[in-house]
Design a protein around this nucleic acid. Structure first.
Lengths: 187, 187
DNA sequence: TTGCTAACTTGACATGGTGTAAACTTGACG
DNA sequence: CGTCAAGTTTACACCATGTCAAGTTAGCAA
Protein backbone atom coordinates (compact mmCIF):
# COMPACT_ATOMS: atom_id res chain seq x y z
CA UNK A 1 0.00 0.00 0.00
CA UNK A 2 2.76 2.41 0.87
CA UNK A 3 4.61 1.40 -2.24
CA UNK A 4 1.33 1.59 -4.13
CA UNK A 5 0.36 5.01 -2.93
CA UNK A 6 3.19 7.42 -2.30
CA UNK A 7 2.96 11.11 -2.79
CA UNK A 8 1.07 12.08 -5.90
CA UNK A 9 4.08 14.18 -6.77
CA UNK A 10 6.34 11.17 -6.51
CA UNK A 11 3.98 9.08 -8.58
CA UNK A 12 4.08 11.70 -11.32
CA UNK A 13 7.86 11.76 -11.26
CA UNK A 14 8.04 7.99 -11.43
CA UNK A 15 5.58 7.92 -14.29
CA UNK A 16 7.56 10.52 -16.20
CA UNK A 17 10.72 8.57 -15.56
CA UNK A 18 9.52 5.24 -16.84
CA UNK A 19 7.71 6.74 -19.83
CA UNK A 20 10.73 8.73 -20.89
CA UNK A 21 12.96 5.73 -20.46
CA UNK A 22 10.96 3.65 -22.86
CA UNK A 23 8.80 5.86 -25.06
CA UNK A 24 11.14 8.11 -26.96
CA UNK A 25 11.07 11.80 -26.12
CA UNK A 26 7.68 12.73 -27.49
CA UNK A 27 5.93 11.97 -24.24
CA UNK A 28 3.02 14.33 -23.61
CA UNK A 29 1.84 15.77 -20.34
CA UNK A 30 -1.37 13.81 -20.73
CA UNK A 31 0.56 10.56 -21.12
CA UNK A 32 2.40 11.17 -17.91
CA UNK A 33 -0.79 12.12 -16.11
CA UNK A 34 -2.53 8.99 -17.28
CA UNK A 35 0.38 6.79 -16.27
CA UNK A 36 0.40 8.40 -12.84
CA UNK A 37 -3.34 7.79 -12.51
CA UNK A 38 -4.14 11.45 -12.23
CA UNK A 39 -5.76 14.16 -14.31
CA UNK A 40 -3.69 16.27 -16.67
CA UNK A 41 -4.38 19.40 -14.64
CA UNK A 42 -3.20 17.76 -11.45
CA UNK A 43 0.25 17.60 -12.96
CA UNK A 44 0.21 21.37 -13.25
CA UNK A 45 -0.64 21.62 -9.56
CA UNK A 46 2.79 20.19 -8.86
CA UNK A 47 4.90 21.36 -11.78
CA UNK A 48 4.45 24.67 -13.53
CA UNK A 49 5.49 23.45 -16.95
CA UNK A 50 6.72 20.49 -18.90
CA UNK A 51 10.27 21.75 -18.60
CA UNK A 52 10.00 22.01 -14.85
CA UNK A 53 8.63 18.49 -14.61
CA UNK A 54 11.48 17.13 -16.69
CA UNK A 55 14.06 18.93 -14.61
CA UNK A 56 12.45 17.68 -11.41
CA UNK A 57 12.55 14.19 -12.88
CA UNK A 58 16.30 14.34 -13.33
CA UNK A 59 16.69 15.43 -9.71
CA UNK A 60 14.40 12.63 -8.66
CA UNK A 61 16.51 10.09 -10.50
CA UNK A 62 19.66 11.48 -8.94
CA UNK A 63 18.12 11.10 -5.51
CA UNK A 64 16.83 7.58 -6.03
CA UNK A 65 20.05 6.31 -7.59
CA UNK A 66 22.20 8.12 -5.07
CA UNK A 67 24.34 9.60 -7.79
CA UNK A 68 26.24 11.93 -5.51
CA UNK A 69 27.61 9.06 -3.49
CA UNK A 70 28.87 7.29 -6.56
CA UNK A 71 30.54 10.36 -7.97
CA UNK A 72 32.06 11.12 -4.60
CA UNK A 73 33.68 7.69 -4.66
CA UNK A 74 35.67 8.70 -7.71
CA UNK A 75 37.08 11.64 -5.81
CA UNK A 76 38.77 9.32 -3.34
CA UNK A 77 41.37 8.08 -5.79
CA UNK A 78 44.92 9.10 -5.04
CA UNK A 79 46.64 8.89 -8.40
CA UNK A 80 45.51 10.75 -11.48
CA UNK A 81 45.12 7.73 -13.68
CA UNK A 82 43.19 5.86 -11.06
CA UNK A 83 40.89 8.82 -10.67
CA UNK A 84 40.41 9.05 -14.41
CA UNK A 85 39.37 5.43 -14.43
CA UNK A 86 36.92 5.82 -11.60
CA UNK A 87 35.49 8.98 -13.06
CA UNK A 88 34.86 7.32 -16.38
CA UNK A 89 33.25 4.35 -14.65
CA UNK A 90 30.99 6.54 -12.58
CA UNK A 91 29.97 8.82 -15.40
CA UNK A 92 29.43 6.08 -17.95
CA UNK A 93 27.26 4.27 -15.46
CA UNK A 94 25.29 7.44 -14.99
CA UNK A 95 24.59 8.21 -18.64
CA UNK A 96 22.15 5.40 -19.40
CA UNK A 97 20.20 6.20 -16.28
CA UNK A 98 19.35 9.73 -17.27
CA UNK A 99 19.42 9.14 -20.99
CA UNK A 100 15.64 9.08 -21.36
CA UNK A 101 14.98 12.32 -19.58
CA UNK A 102 18.14 13.75 -21.04
CA UNK A 103 16.89 13.25 -24.57
CA UNK A 104 13.63 14.97 -23.81
CA UNK A 105 15.43 17.81 -22.11
CA UNK A 106 17.85 18.21 -25.01
CA UNK A 107 14.95 18.27 -27.43
CA UNK A 108 13.51 21.25 -25.55
CA UNK A 109 16.69 23.26 -25.51
CA UNK A 110 15.69 25.46 -28.41
CA UNK A 111 12.22 26.19 -27.18
CA UNK A 112 12.65 26.51 -23.45
CA UNK A 113 15.26 28.50 -21.63
CA UNK A 114 14.86 26.71 -18.30
CA UNK A 115 15.39 23.35 -19.91
CA UNK A 116 18.45 24.68 -21.68
CA UNK A 117 19.92 26.05 -18.46
CA UNK A 118 19.25 22.88 -16.52
CA UNK A 119 20.97 20.71 -19.09
CA UNK A 120 23.87 23.07 -19.58
CA UNK A 121 24.40 23.11 -15.82
CA UNK A 122 24.56 19.36 -15.71
CA UNK A 123 27.06 19.27 -18.52
CA UNK A 124 29.09 21.97 -16.84
CA UNK A 125 29.21 19.93 -13.67
CA UNK A 126 30.51 17.01 -15.67
CA UNK A 127 33.02 19.24 -17.37
CA UNK A 128 34.14 20.43 -13.97
CA UNK A 129 34.94 16.87 -13.03
CA UNK A 130 36.97 16.56 -16.21
CA UNK A 131 38.97 19.62 -15.30
CA UNK A 132 39.75 18.15 -11.89
CA UNK A 133 40.94 14.93 -13.50
CA UNK A 134 43.00 16.80 -16.08
CA UNK A 135 44.63 18.85 -13.34
CA UNK A 136 45.69 15.78 -11.42
CA UNK A 137 47.11 14.28 -14.56
CA UNK A 138 48.98 17.48 -15.34
CA UNK A 139 50.50 17.54 -11.84
CA UNK A 140 51.86 14.09 -12.48
CA UNK A 141 53.09 15.05 -15.96
CA UNK A 142 50.82 12.46 -17.47
CA UNK A 143 49.33 14.72 -20.11
CA UNK A 144 50.52 14.56 -23.68
CA UNK A 145 53.18 17.29 -24.11
CA UNK A 146 51.72 20.49 -25.51
CA UNK A 147 48.22 19.72 -24.31
CA UNK A 148 46.92 22.30 -21.88
CA UNK A 149 44.80 21.34 -18.90
CA UNK A 150 41.75 23.12 -20.25
CA UNK A 151 42.02 21.55 -23.67
CA UNK A 152 42.49 18.14 -22.14
CA UNK A 153 39.40 18.63 -20.00
CA UNK A 154 37.34 19.84 -22.95
CA UNK A 155 38.42 16.86 -24.96
CA UNK A 156 37.61 14.41 -22.23
CA UNK A 157 34.22 16.02 -21.71
CA UNK A 158 33.50 15.71 -25.39
CA UNK A 159 34.48 12.04 -25.44
CA UNK A 160 32.21 11.36 -22.52
CA UNK A 161 29.31 13.46 -23.74
CA UNK A 162 25.85 11.98 -23.79
CA UNK A 163 25.75 12.51 -27.55
CA UNK A 164 28.95 10.58 -28.00
CA UNK A 165 27.63 7.74 -25.91
CA UNK A 166 24.38 7.83 -27.85
CA UNK A 167 26.25 7.66 -31.12
CA UNK A 168 28.43 4.70 -30.22
CA UNK A 169 26.23 2.68 -27.92
CA UNK A 170 22.74 3.16 -29.27
CA UNK A 171 23.29 3.78 -32.97
CA UNK A 172 26.52 1.88 -33.66
CA UNK A 173 25.65 -0.94 -31.34
CA UNK A 174 28.63 -0.93 -29.03
CA UNK A 175 28.21 -2.63 -25.69
CA UNK A 176 28.51 -0.58 -22.56
CA UNK A 177 31.77 -2.33 -21.65
CA UNK A 178 33.18 -1.73 -25.14
CA UNK A 179 32.48 1.89 -24.62
CA UNK A 180 34.00 2.14 -21.18
CA UNK A 181 37.12 0.26 -22.24
CA UNK A 182 37.62 2.34 -25.35
CA UNK A 183 37.15 5.60 -23.49
CA UNK A 184 39.70 4.59 -20.89
CA UNK A 185 42.22 3.64 -23.54
CA UNK A 186 41.76 6.80 -25.53
CA UNK A 187 41.85 9.08 -22.56
CA UNK B 1 17.64 41.72 -61.92
CA UNK B 2 18.55 38.13 -62.54
CA UNK B 3 20.41 38.00 -59.24
CA UNK B 4 17.51 39.86 -57.68
CA UNK B 5 14.84 37.62 -59.06
CA UNK B 6 15.75 33.98 -59.47
CA UNK B 7 13.30 31.18 -59.14
CA UNK B 8 10.88 31.66 -56.29
CA UNK B 9 11.94 28.21 -55.18
CA UNK B 10 15.56 29.24 -55.05
CA UNK B 11 14.69 32.41 -53.19
CA UNK B 12 12.89 30.36 -50.55
CA UNK B 13 15.87 28.03 -50.18
CA UNK B 14 18.25 30.95 -49.85
CA UNK B 15 16.01 32.59 -47.29
CA UNK B 16 15.80 29.40 -45.26
CA UNK B 17 19.54 29.03 -45.46
CA UNK B 18 20.43 32.46 -44.16
CA UNK B 19 17.75 32.45 -41.49
CA UNK B 20 18.83 29.09 -40.15
CA UNK B 21 22.45 30.15 -40.20
CA UNK B 22 21.80 33.11 -37.96
CA UNK B 23 18.53 32.69 -36.14
CA UNK B 24 18.81 29.55 -34.06
CA UNK B 25 16.64 26.62 -35.05
CA UNK B 26 13.23 27.95 -34.12
CA UNK B 27 12.68 29.50 -37.52
CA UNK B 28 9.05 29.31 -38.59
CA UNK B 29 7.64 28.77 -42.03
CA UNK B 30 6.22 32.29 -41.93
CA UNK B 31 9.66 33.73 -41.17
CA UNK B 32 11.12 32.02 -44.17
CA UNK B 33 8.24 33.11 -46.37
CA UNK B 34 8.61 36.71 -45.28
CA UNK B 35 12.35 36.66 -45.86
CA UNK B 36 11.77 35.26 -49.33
CA UNK B 37 9.22 37.97 -50.07
CA UNK B 38 6.43 35.50 -50.57
CA UNK B 39 3.28 34.40 -48.78
CA UNK B 40 3.39 31.57 -46.29
CA UNK B 41 1.20 29.41 -48.49
CA UNK B 42 3.46 29.89 -51.48
CA UNK B 43 6.14 27.99 -49.60
CA UNK B 44 3.80 25.01 -49.48
CA UNK B 45 3.41 25.21 -53.24
CA UNK B 46 7.08 24.28 -53.50
CA UNK B 47 7.70 22.16 -50.41
CA UNK B 48 5.17 19.85 -48.87
CA UNK B 49 6.33 20.32 -45.30
CA UNK B 50 8.85 22.01 -43.11
CA UNK B 51 10.95 18.86 -43.04
CA UNK B 52 11.03 18.70 -46.82
CA UNK B 53 12.06 22.31 -47.05
CA UNK B 54 14.89 21.77 -44.60
CA UNK B 55 16.10 18.72 -46.44
CA UNK B 56 15.96 20.57 -49.75
CA UNK B 57 17.94 23.35 -48.12
CA UNK B 58 20.78 21.00 -47.25
CA UNK B 59 20.88 19.77 -50.83
CA UNK B 60 20.84 23.35 -52.03
CA UNK B 61 23.82 24.19 -49.83
CA UNK B 62 25.68 21.13 -51.08
CA UNK B 63 25.10 22.22 -54.65
CA UNK B 64 26.12 25.82 -54.12
CA UNK B 65 29.23 24.97 -52.13
CA UNK B 66 30.18 22.12 -54.41
CA UNK B 67 30.67 19.77 -51.51
CA UNK B 68 31.09 16.70 -53.63
CA UNK B 69 34.16 18.11 -55.34
CA UNK B 70 35.82 18.90 -52.04
CA UNK B 71 35.15 15.49 -50.57
CA UNK B 72 36.35 13.84 -53.76
CA UNK B 73 39.67 15.64 -53.34
CA UNK B 74 40.26 13.78 -50.09
CA UNK B 75 39.90 10.49 -51.93
CA UNK B 76 42.92 11.27 -54.07
CA UNK B 77 45.41 10.82 -51.24
CA UNK B 78 47.73 7.85 -51.58
CA UNK B 79 48.79 7.12 -48.02
CA UNK B 80 46.41 6.42 -45.19
CA UNK B 81 47.63 9.16 -42.92
CA UNK B 82 47.51 11.69 -45.69
CA UNK B 83 44.01 10.67 -46.48
CA UNK B 84 43.01 10.92 -42.86
CA UNK B 85 44.32 14.45 -42.82
CA UNK B 86 42.49 15.47 -45.93
CA UNK B 87 39.31 13.84 -44.83
CA UNK B 88 39.37 15.70 -41.54
CA UNK B 89 40.06 18.96 -43.34
CA UNK B 90 37.24 18.47 -45.77
CA UNK B 91 34.72 17.35 -43.22
CA UNK B 92 35.59 19.98 -40.64
CA UNK B 93 35.26 22.62 -43.30
CA UNK B 94 31.87 21.23 -44.15
CA UNK B 95 30.40 21.18 -40.66
CA UNK B 96 30.04 24.92 -40.09
CA UNK B 97 28.41 25.30 -43.47
CA UNK B 98 25.51 23.02 -42.74
CA UNK B 99 25.46 23.60 -39.01
CA UNK B 100 22.45 25.92 -39.10
CA UNK B 101 20.21 23.64 -41.10
CA UNK B 102 21.69 20.66 -39.34
CA UNK B 103 20.57 21.92 -35.97
CA UNK B 104 17.03 22.48 -37.18
CA UNK B 105 16.98 19.06 -38.77
CA UNK B 106 18.30 17.39 -35.63
CA UNK B 107 15.68 19.16 -33.58
CA UNK B 108 12.99 17.59 -35.75
CA UNK B 109 14.31 14.06 -35.47
CA UNK B 110 11.84 12.99 -32.84
CA UNK B 111 8.79 14.44 -34.52
CA UNK B 112 9.44 13.79 -38.19
CA UNK B 113 10.56 10.58 -39.76
CA UNK B 114 11.71 12.13 -43.04
CA UNK B 115 13.93 14.57 -41.20
CA UNK B 116 15.34 11.72 -39.16
CA UNK B 117 16.10 9.65 -42.23
CA UNK B 118 17.69 12.52 -44.07
CA UNK B 119 20.02 13.34 -41.21
CA UNK B 120 20.87 9.73 -40.49
CA UNK B 121 21.74 9.24 -44.14
CA UNK B 122 24.10 12.14 -44.05
CA UNK B 123 25.79 10.83 -40.95
CA UNK B 124 26.01 7.38 -42.47
CA UNK B 125 27.75 8.82 -45.50
CA UNK B 126 30.27 10.47 -43.21
CA UNK B 127 30.70 7.24 -41.31
CA UNK B 128 31.33 5.48 -44.58
CA UNK B 129 34.21 7.84 -45.25
CA UNK B 130 35.59 7.01 -41.84
CA UNK B 131 35.47 3.32 -42.62
CA UNK B 132 37.41 3.90 -45.82
CA UNK B 133 40.06 5.83 -43.95
CA UNK B 134 40.27 3.22 -41.20
CA UNK B 135 40.68 0.51 -43.79
CA UNK B 136 43.60 2.25 -45.45
CA UNK B 137 45.23 2.73 -42.08
CA UNK B 138 44.72 -0.91 -41.21
CA UNK B 139 46.31 -2.00 -44.49
CA UNK B 140 49.38 0.00 -43.54
CA UNK B 141 49.35 -1.36 -39.98
CA UNK B 142 48.90 2.12 -38.65
CA UNK B 143 46.03 1.30 -36.32
CA UNK B 144 46.62 0.85 -32.62
CA UNK B 145 47.05 -2.89 -31.99
CA UNK B 146 43.82 -4.53 -30.94
CA UNK B 147 41.64 -1.86 -32.52
CA UNK B 148 39.38 -3.27 -35.18
CA UNK B 149 38.63 -1.37 -38.37
CA UNK B 150 35.01 -0.94 -37.51
CA UNK B 151 35.68 0.31 -34.02
CA UNK B 152 38.29 2.70 -35.32
CA UNK B 153 35.82 4.05 -37.86
CA UNK B 154 33.09 4.43 -35.25
CA UNK B 155 35.46 6.27 -32.99
CA UNK B 156 36.62 8.60 -35.71
CA UNK B 157 33.04 9.31 -36.72
CA UNK B 158 32.18 10.14 -33.14
CA UNK B 159 35.14 12.50 -32.83
CA UNK B 160 34.12 14.29 -35.98
CA UNK B 161 30.41 14.38 -35.23
CA UNK B 162 28.52 17.62 -35.54
CA UNK B 163 27.67 17.39 -31.85
CA UNK B 164 31.31 17.06 -30.93
CA UNK B 165 32.19 20.04 -33.04
CA UNK B 166 29.32 21.97 -31.52
CA UNK B 167 30.51 21.13 -28.04
CA UNK B 168 34.11 22.18 -28.53
CA UNK B 169 33.84 25.01 -31.01
CA UNK B 170 30.62 26.75 -30.12
CA UNK B 171 30.23 26.08 -26.42
CA UNK B 172 33.84 25.72 -25.25
CA UNK B 173 35.11 28.41 -27.55
CA UNK B 174 37.77 26.53 -29.46
CA UNK B 175 38.86 27.99 -32.76
CA UNK B 176 38.25 26.04 -35.91
CA UNK B 177 41.98 25.46 -36.33
CA UNK B 178 42.33 24.30 -32.70
CA UNK B 179 39.67 21.78 -33.45
CA UNK B 180 41.17 20.52 -36.68
CA UNK B 181 44.63 20.21 -35.17
CA UNK B 182 43.40 18.39 -32.10
CA UNK B 183 41.32 15.99 -34.14
CA UNK B 184 44.28 15.16 -36.35
CA UNK B 185 46.50 14.53 -33.38
CA UNK B 186 44.02 12.37 -31.59
CA UNK B 187 43.11 10.34 -34.58
C1' DT C 1 -9.43 41.04 -78.28
C1' DT C 2 -10.65 37.15 -75.62
C1' DG C 3 -9.52 33.48 -72.92
C1' DC C 4 -6.69 30.12 -70.69
C1' DT C 5 -3.15 28.76 -67.42
C1' DA C 6 0.55 28.85 -63.93
C1' DA C 7 2.13 31.14 -60.05
C1' DC C 8 0.88 33.56 -56.17
C1' DT C 9 -2.23 35.91 -52.66
C1' DT C 10 -5.84 36.19 -49.09
C1' DG C 11 -8.40 34.54 -45.62
C1' DA C 12 -10.50 30.84 -43.15
C1' DC C 13 -10.12 26.69 -40.79
C1' DA C 14 -8.63 21.91 -38.66
C1' DT C 15 -5.30 19.76 -35.62
C1' DG C 16 -2.47 18.89 -31.62
C1' DG C 17 0.00 20.04 -27.63
C1' DT C 18 0.82 23.44 -23.87
C1' DG C 19 -0.73 26.20 -20.39
C1' DT C 20 -4.67 28.96 -17.74
C1' DA C 21 -9.05 29.56 -15.36
C1' DA C 22 -13.09 28.51 -12.73
C1' DA C 23 -16.34 25.77 -10.44
C1' DC C 24 -17.33 21.40 -8.28
C1' DT C 25 -16.18 17.11 -5.22
C1' DT C 26 -14.22 14.76 -1.47
C1' DG C 27 -11.83 13.40 2.66
C1' DA C 28 -9.33 14.67 6.81
C1' DC C 29 -9.01 17.28 10.69
C1' DG C 30 -10.01 20.77 14.30
C1' DC D 1 -20.10 21.68 11.28
C1' DG D 2 -16.90 24.35 8.70
C1' DT D 3 -12.94 24.62 6.18
C1' DC D 4 -8.82 23.62 3.83
C1' DA D 5 -5.99 20.92 0.66
C1' DA D 6 -5.78 18.11 -3.16
C1' DG D 7 -8.08 16.56 -7.25
C1' DT D 8 -11.55 16.48 -10.97
C1' DT D 9 -14.05 18.23 -15.03
C1' DT D 10 -14.87 21.36 -18.48
C1' DA D 11 -13.73 25.08 -21.23
C1' DC D 12 -10.77 28.10 -23.43
C1' DA D 13 -6.56 30.92 -25.26
C1' DC D 14 -2.36 30.35 -27.87
C1' DC D 15 0.70 29.02 -31.45
C1' DA D 16 2.78 26.59 -35.31
C1' DT D 17 1.83 23.35 -38.93
C1' DG D 18 -0.68 22.11 -42.63
C1' DT D 19 -5.14 22.21 -45.75
C1' DC D 20 -8.68 24.35 -48.64
C1' DA D 21 -11.08 27.35 -51.64
C1' DA D 22 -11.68 31.47 -54.10
C1' DG D 23 -9.62 35.49 -56.09
C1' DT D 24 -5.72 38.09 -58.63
C1' DT D 25 -2.33 38.83 -62.19
C1' DA D 26 1.00 38.25 -65.97
C1' DG D 27 1.98 36.06 -70.03
C1' DC D 28 0.91 33.64 -73.86
C1' DA D 29 -2.00 31.73 -77.66
C1' DA D 30 -5.79 31.58 -80.90
Amino acid sequence: MSSENPNTQTRILDAAWTLLETGGSKVRMSDIAKAAGVSRQAVYLHFASRAELLIATTRHIDAVKDVDARLAASRAATSGLERLDHYIDAWCGYIPEIYGVGRALMAMQDSDEDARDAWVNRMNAMHHGCVAVAKMLADEDKLRPGLSVSHAADLLAMLLSVRGWEDLVTTRGWSQSDYIEEMKTLA
